[in-house]
Amino acid sequence: MPAESPRSRLLERGAAALSDEELLALLLHLGFGDSGSLMLARELLVCFSGLVGLARAGQPDLLAHPGMGPARYAKLAASTELARRQALQEMRANGDVLSSPGHTRRFLSYHLGTRPREVFTCLFMDSQHRVLRCEDLFFGTLDGAAVYPREVAVRALQYGSAAVIFAHNHPSGVAEPSAADRRITERLVGALALLDIRVLDHIIVGSGPAYSFAEQGLL
């Protein structure tokens, strides 16, 4: 009896019943006659050390992998972006970012967790804490990003913000704040306080649970 296909198992038992390999194979499947997607999925997960490494891989590295190709890469990139947009919509669903910190963290994890280098993001909000704009302001290397309080203040005033949430990623996977993270947070809080703009949180995204400055009593 032939083995049950991933698609059949998904339709009968739901997506949660499938392994990472099977879900990825479904995503990479190109249609009738494509029998190599499961093997390709297995190779990709090994080559990039799992789903997190695969999501962080750049376009050149993925396209260089035998069997990947532009069509499969496009499907993989589209699925990642759809997950990010879904998380953003969930965060905005009630018009109040603070009504669901879990949705906020989920969005930031999707938004930043797959970046191969450090990115500093700002969520600008109005007086009701509704999200006005999400913007990536500073970009760095694995060692950090240069963050300039003046530029953050200019953007906050431009968007009419009353409050902000900062977030950045640690590509190393460790979400604990560094001494530099603490210093720049203090500088940002001080600079925005002069403009009567509140800093609600600074979230660090790593490979595990996100770190919240507010929850740790650092704000």
Results as ranks from 00 to 15, higher is better:
residue 46 V to G: 09
residue 169 N to F: 06
residue 181 D to I: 03
residue 30 L to S: 11
residue 37 S to E: 07
residue 95 G to R: 14
residue 120 F to T: 09
residue 14 G to P: 01
residue 21 E to Q: 13
residue 188 L to I: 12
residue 135 E to S: 07
residue 177 P to M: 03
residue 109 S to H: 09
residue 209 P to A: 15
residue 142 L to E: 13
residue 26 L to N: 01
residue 112 L to M: 03
residue 75 K to Q: 07
residue 107 F to L: 09
residue 140 G to N: 08
residue 79 S to G: 02
residue 19 S to P: 02
residue 61 D to L: 14
residue 11 L to W: 06
residue 170 H to Q: 13
residue 158 Q to R: 15
residue 62 L to C: 12
residue 188 L to D: 01
residue 123 L to V: 13
residue 147 V to P: 05
residue 213 F to W: 08
residue 43 E to G: 04
residue 129 H to M: 06
residue 219 L to P: 01
residue 4 E to D: 04
residue 3 A to W: 10
residue 98 L to T: 15
residue 147 V to N: 05
residue 33 G to R: 10
residue 198 R to E: 14
residue 22 E to T: 00
residue 71 A to G: 08
residue 72 R to S: 05
residue 58 G to W: 02
residue 208 G to W: 00
residue 121 T to G: 04
residue 156 A to P: 04
residue 126 D to R: 11
residue 198 R to Y: 08
residue 44 L to V: 05
residue 79 S to L: 05
residue 155 R to I: 00
residue 55 A to I: 01
residue 186 E to A: 15
residue 77 A to I: 07
residue 120 F to N: 06
residue 124 F to K: 00
residue 166 F to Y: 11
residue 151 E to F: 11
residue 24 L to Q: 08
residue 105 R to D: 08
residue 133 R to P: 00
residue 1 M to Q: 11
residue 194 L to H: 12
residue 63 L to D: 09
residue 194 L to E: 15
residue 107 F to W: 06
residue 141 T to Y: 00
residue 63 L to R: 10
residue 170 H to A: 09
residue 154 V to A: 15
residue 97 V to I: 14
residue 8 S to L: 12
residue 178 S to K: 05
residue 108 L to Y: 07
residue 67 G to M: 01
residue 156 A to I: 13
residue 109 S to N: 08
residue 105 R to M: 08
residue 165 I to A: 03
residue 63 L to F: 07
residue 106 R to E: 10
residue 199 V to L: 15
residue 161 S to K: 02
residue 97 V to G: 04
residue 195 L to F: 13
residue 153 A to D: 13
residue 101 P to D: 09
residue 176 E to C: 07
residue 218 L to V: 12
residue 34 D to T: 10
residue 156 A to R: 04
residue 204 I to L: 15
residue 184 I to H: 03
residue 84 R to L: 04
residue 159 Y to N: 08
residue 74 A to C: 06
residue 140 G to L: 02
residue 29 H to C: 09
residue 87 A to E: 08
residue 101 P to C: 03
residue 6 P to G: 02
residue 65 H to T: 10
residue 183 R to E: 14
residue 166 F to M: 12
residue 77 A to V: 06
residue 26 L to V: 05
residue 15 A to Q: 11
residue 139 F to C: 07
residue 10 L to W: 04
residue 24 L to G: 02
residue 43 E to D: 13
residue 20 D to V: 01
residue 215 E to S: 09
residue 142 L to G: 08
residue 211 Y to K: 00
residue 8 S to N: 09
residue 206 G to S: 07
